[in-house]
């Protein structure tokens, strides 16, 4: 999935996967922080947004 996305020219960080158990709240906080930072570094999503006004 991710491979084809990237193949198609969507930046690698736009789609992220992780695995957290329900007992790992600290890991959750860690991962949220990490994901947010990496996306911040990536900048806004400009490619894969539908530009025409009407929704969907």
């Amino acid at each position: 999935m991710k491979n084809l996305m990237e193949h198609m020219g969507v930046e690698p960080g736009r789609l992220q996967f992780s695995w957290i158990s329900s007992a790992e709240s600290t890991k959750f906080v860690d991962v949220v922080t990490k994901v947010t930072e990496s996306v911040k570094a990536l900048g806004p999503n400009t490619n894969y947004v539908k530009k025409s006004g009407a929704k969907g």
């Binding site: 736009r14 992220q16 996967f17 990536l42 894969y48 947004v49």
Partner: peptide, 17 residues
């Protein structure tokens, strides 16, 4: 799901199990 999310303007999608 995530194509729809990106299309509607999300900056990233995060899936976590």
């Amino acid at each position: 799901f995530f194509l729809a999310a990106l299309r509607e303007g999300a900056d990233a999608v995060w899936v976590s199990g």
